[in-house]
């Protein structure tokens, strides 16, 4: 507890490029950029595979193997291969880790939509693209959002680990604190990251409540 007071009570930790507001902003920025990049790649791909049913086996197998990939090893290897100096190489492992959950959940969400519902939509005269956007996506939205939530939380956590190879953000307090045996900084950083992760979790619960159509969420709640 004293360590926390040492860390959060120190005015030097609240201003400048190494201050908590600046580090927090960096952390959120990296995480957001990584998440948006993975969404741009994974969501259209997931929609396409889910809608057409092509390439499904490949997705499931790759995603399962990806879950076993050790974050720290991936970060270290990619940054060594691409080179340090700029920050964008560090984004590659973050994106690589965020893609599988988004891709699999989008695919499974679309795939899992009731056959009858799909038929009814075609029967009403909707075309392929319209069926996808007006029926399949809204019904699959809870699963898609779940995938995004898992990815976001993983990115926030991994951005912490990536401080080891020179990324800024809240991980700096942890890694630098460990290197200099400055425990107040390490513990303070850990608490900040944990709080940020909880905020992300909460934000997604709210997003889910706002975005998912009430008809769908009632059914989803029953199915769980």
């Amino acid at each position: 507890m004293n360590w926390l007071i040492d860390f959060f009570g120190n005015p030097a930790n609240w201003s400048g490029p190494g201050g908590i507001p600046a580090r927090l902003l960096e952390h959120v920025e990296f995480s957001l950029v990584a998440l948006i990049l993975s969404m741009i790649i994974a969501i259209p791909l997931g929609l396409l595979i889910g809608h057409t049913g092509r390439g499904a086996v490949l997705v499931v197998v790759t995603a399962n193997a990806a879950r076993a990939l050790p974050t720290l090893g991936l970060v270290v290897l990619i940054v060594l291969l691409v080179g340090v100096g700029t920050t964008w190489p560090v984004l590659i492992p973050l994106v690589a880790l965020a893609i599988p959950p988004i891709l699999v959940n989008t695919y499974e969400g679309i795939r899992g939509v009731d056959e009858d519902l799909r038929d009814a939509a075609y029967g009403m005269g909707l075309r392929g693209g319209q069926v996808l956007m007006k029926v399949l996506v809204p019904v699959a939205l809870p699963l898609i959002l779940l995938g995004l939530r898992v990815a976001a939380i993983q990115v926030v956590a991994t951005a912490t680990v990536a401080a080891y190879v020179g990324l800024g953000g809240l991980g700096r307090y942890i890694i630098d604190g460990l290197a200099t045996k400055d425990f107040p900084s390490t513990i303070g950083g850990a608490v900040l990251v944990a709080v940020l992760a909880l905020i992300v979790q909460l934000a997604f619960s709210l997003l889910q409540r706002v975005m998912v159509s009430p008809g769908v969420s009632r059914r989803a709640a029953k199915a769980r």
């Binding site: 939380i153 912490t160 942890i174 425990f183 390490t186 513990i187 850990a190 608490v191 909880l198 992300v200």
Partner: peptide, 18 residues
């Protein structure tokens, strides 16, 4: 359990060190 799962592992390791 959802809350626990969202905590970054490195953060939890460090809080436990003391």
């Amino acid at each position: 359990m959802n809350v626990v799962y969202s905590l970054p592992s490195l953060a939890v390791f460090i809080v436990l060190i003391p």
